[in-house]
Amino acid sequence: MTVLTADVGRKTECPDCGHIFEIKKAEIKLEIPEEILPEDEYGLKDVSHDHDEARRKMGQNIMSQAEKEIKEQAERKDLNKKTQGAFEERRPRERELQIEGDEHEPKPRESLTPEDYQPRDELVDFPLSFTPKELARDVMLFSDVGLLMRWVFLSIFAAVTLYFAVNAIYYGSLESQTIVTYLSTFMYTVLSVVLGAGTLAFLGSYFLFLVMTVSTGLEEWEWPEIGIFDRVMEALFMIVALSLTMVPFGIMITIDKSMAWPCLFIPGVAFPLVYLGMLDQGTVLSPWSNTIMVSLFQIPVKWLMFFGATLGLLVVCCLVGYGMFAMAGIERLAYIALPGGVLVVGYFLAYAIWLGRLSWEISELHAEYKEEDAESKTSSPA
């Protein structure tokens, strides 16, 4: 219901309910803002009487923060009195301390690294020794979960590779060749090469990891998860070392097969020298290392122990493999392929651990010579 301004003071009847009432004049209330003090132009100094709780809390917080900053600025010292001008004469730091009344002499800067810190103290020793204690440690190294998982993984692929490779050799050596034997030889050769390349890449990477880890003296192993390209680059050390040391055998087998088999002793002797030499130089392009060659004459007993142990283990693995093949034959090759893969991978892993121990001996010998040279230089007069 709406009324006019002229009807104010009159009585009227509601058309809906019939109630008679007097029309009164509406009162308009104007809110007069509080007077703002000149020193508090934002109205934040006294907000205790504000009806809006949020605005009151915000004002109190702002005022308390402002008062705190003013107090800190008042207590802050005048820095201009201590700051030296750009054109004033420079004074030594000791003189400034004396002028300021500091009686304490400046202390020399302490080294971040203690003088008696020895990085190798946190490492463990891996000497090349075949005592019961060290052999038990080798067994404990082989019980590492990461190593066992990789051993099983590589053994499966090595077994399949051996199966294809032996079949390729068998079908290729048959006297009566047919289209079936040709295709079988080609298929088995391709599969053995492809799977063998992948197996060799992972085996070479794990081989390098074991040699470097044992040589460094790390007791806890952290197996790195790297890409296939990095694994191939790590495996190049073993591939190049094997290729270089197998050159005499490859040349002799094309001339006289009966004279080629004795040449297999050359890789057994030259492979650790070439492999450690490349690791010492840090590149596969330089297989020669004076440190490794000199160690042959410095620790000949360790080298002879290494050659004897690796050769003995190789003979045992070959005899076991030949015995299984003689009993099973080519017809049951699938049954002996997996044990053969386990033997091959296990031999390379054991070889890597012993080669790492030999490398540890060489590094310890090299460190001793460095310490002796440093002591002789310090003791000699300048």
Results as ranks from 00 to 15, higher is better:
L349T: 07
I353Y: 00
G59W: 03
W360T: 04
E110C: 08
V240Q: 02
P262R: 07
L191D: 01
L279K: 01
F297S: 12
M278F: 00
M327A: 11
M63V: 01
F186S: 09
L314S: 11
A350W: 01
L208I: 15
Y188C: 06
I70H: 14
A66H: 07
L123S: 05
T2I: 15
D121M: 03
K25N: 14
T161M: 11
E72I: 11
G204V: 02
L112V: 05
I353W: 03
P267W: 10
S205C: 12
Q65W: 05
D116Y: 02
R332V: 04
L279S: 01
G346Y: 01
T178C: 06
S376G: 07
E53P: 04
E105C: 08
P272I: 06
V342C: 05
E375T: 09
K370S: 12
W221V: 11
N290S: 13
T254C: 08
P127Y: 10
S359Y: 09
E34C: 03
F348H: 04
L236Q: 05
T178E: 09
A235C: 09
L313I: 11
Y335I: 10
C14P: 02
G250A: 11
G196D: 08
P287F: 03
D16C: 05
F297I: 13
L79V: 09
V315M: 14
V145K: 12
S380A: 12
T189A: 13
F202G: 01
T189R: 06
L264P: 01
T2E: 15
E105W: 12
M238D: 03
P339H: 04
A74E: 12
V145C: 02
M278Q: 02
I255V: 15
E88W: 14
V301W: 15
D144W: 01
E372T: 06
E69Y: 13
V269I: 14
M149N: 13
F142M: 06
A86N: 12
W288C: 05
M246Y: 10
W151Q: 05
L112T: 03
I266A: 15
V232R: 04
K302H: 06
K29P: 02
E361K: 09
K71S: 14
I179F: 13
E105Q: 14
I336W: 07
E361P: 02
L349G: 03
K29Q: 13
V274F: 10
D16I: 11
L218S: 15
L304M: 14
F126S: 05
Q65S: 14
S380M: 02
E220F: 11
E122A: 15
G282L: 05
G312S: 01
G9R: 14
K77L: 15
L313E: 09
R55T: 03
A309Y: 11
L273C: 06
H104L: 15
L242F: 10
L311D: 00
Q73L: 12
A168V: 01
I156K: 00
P262V: 09
V284Y: 02
L264G: 08
L135F: 13
S295H: 01
L304S: 10
L30G: 07
A326G: 04
N290M: 08
P381L: 02
S363K: 09
S176A: 15
I336G: 04
